[in-house]
């Protein structure tokens, strides 16, 4: 079934086909339509929707349902995401699966409700206290919001980790045609072994994150880091017209779509441009990125250069050599213009 759907609604469609049991959310522009759809759709298929009292409660409800082995999610934007950082640390530290969709808006502070990508570090580098990461997916279209949310649940349960779908206001608010999934996913396997479900079989299961023994806690930290290393197999990127590209744009999410239009415009005028677009931001598709070290590189993003900084770090970690990486960026809710992106490439060739 192909439908015209708003990005924010596509999130809920993807969640339902993933088998999402519960949505907990609090209103915030530009993410509110996710809660609107969840409030209507989840009860219709026998699932749970609760409007929480605040984002802190939302994420802790996700934690609670996840601890019970249920597929739970929330969705929010900047300020709400900040309030959820403590809960995300608890989920990561305790090994509780769950999905958080961030329809990024412009910050810092109250900022405004237009598109920015400035929650990059918060999402990708941990965000809360302690040495942890959430897995981070980077959709760029309504279709990918649906598919990404669906996949986020599978990954969350496979790795027992919080997964962030790092979207933005443009994707959340836009409507595009989208193919609905065909069948609802099977429930994740192996949950009975750890979930606390109010049954005789699960009576011995326990979720706690306090470990006063420093050696025990160091071991848990080492296990977490091993888990993150194992996640590297999930790293993925999309490459567009990259084979003979002299200039390659590096961009994720909505920025990558602007860069894609710039690639086409540049190609039409004889400039060999291409696009490298991470589909996962943690784990980062480092190997694929490092193969581009000999190209002219331009990062396109809607933040102060947070993504570029990560790109540089990935080159340093991957090949111990950092190529020149230009930056085209806007902030405050201003979209990067195709003209500015194309102009940056023209200057390099």
């Amino acid at each position: 079934m192909v439908r015209l759907m708003k990005g924010n609604e596509a999130v809920v469609a993807g969640a339902l086909y993933a088998g999402c049991d519960a949505f907990f959310g609090y209103p915030i522009t530009p993410a509110s339509e996710i809660a609107h759809a969840a409030a209507e759709w989840l009860p219709a298929v026998g699932r749970v929707f609760i409007q929480a009292e605040c984002e802190t409660a939302s994420i802790n409800m996700v934690y609670g349902a996840g601890a019970a082995g249920k597929l739970a999610m929330t969705a929010t934007s900047g300020p709400g995401m900040s309030l959820m950082q403590e809960g995300l640390s608890y989920m990561a530290g305790t090994g509780i699966p769950g999905v958080v969709v961030n329809i990024q808006r412009a910050g810092p502070a109250l900022g405004n409700v237009y598109t920015e990508q400035a929650d990059y570090n918060q999402a990708v580098k941990g965000g809360g206290h302690g040495s942890y990461h959430a897995m981070v997916l980077a959709p760029a279209s309504v279709q990918e919001l649906c598919d990404g949310t669906m996949r986020a649940f599978a990954l969350a349960f496979q790795y027992r980790t919080p997964v962030i779908v790092l979207s933005d206001a443009a994707q959340g608010q836009m409507t595009e045609s989208m193919r609905l999934p065909v069948v609802e996913h099977d429930r994740p396997a192996g949950v009975a072994a750890w979930a606390v479900q109010g049954t005789a079989a699960s009576r011995g299961n326990l979720h706690t994150s306090i470990f006063l023994d420093v050696d025990v806690l160091e071991g848990i930290n080492r296990d977490l880091q091993r888990k993150y290393a194992a996640m590297q197999v999930e790293a993925a990127a999309e490459e567009y017209r990259i084979d003979d590209a002299e200039v390659v744009f590096l961009a994720y999410g909505t920025s990558s779509r602007i860069a894609r239009t710039a690639v086409d415009q540049l190609r039409a005028t004889g400039v060999r441009a291409g696009l490298f677009r991470p589909l996962t931001l943690f784990p980062f598709p480092r190997e694929a990125l490092c193969r581009l070290a000999d190209r002219k590189l331009v990062v396109v993003e809607m933040s102060c250069g947070q993504f570029r900084e990560d790109v540089i770090g990935q080159f340093a970690a991957g090949i111990r050599k950092v190529p020149e990486v230009q930056l085209v960026h806007r902030m405050g809710g201003v979209l990067v213009s195709v003209d500015a992106v194309a102009e940056a490439a023209r200057k390099l060739v």
Partner: peptide
């Protein structure tokens, strides 16, 4: 019994989710 540790002050939110989903 089955046990879930909550963040400071968040036991009612955690308990709400367990109660509604189980």
């Amino acid at each position: 019994v089955g046990n879930i540790g909550a963040a400071h002050g968040r036991a009612p939110a955690v308990a709400t989710a367990v109660s509604r989903t189980i």
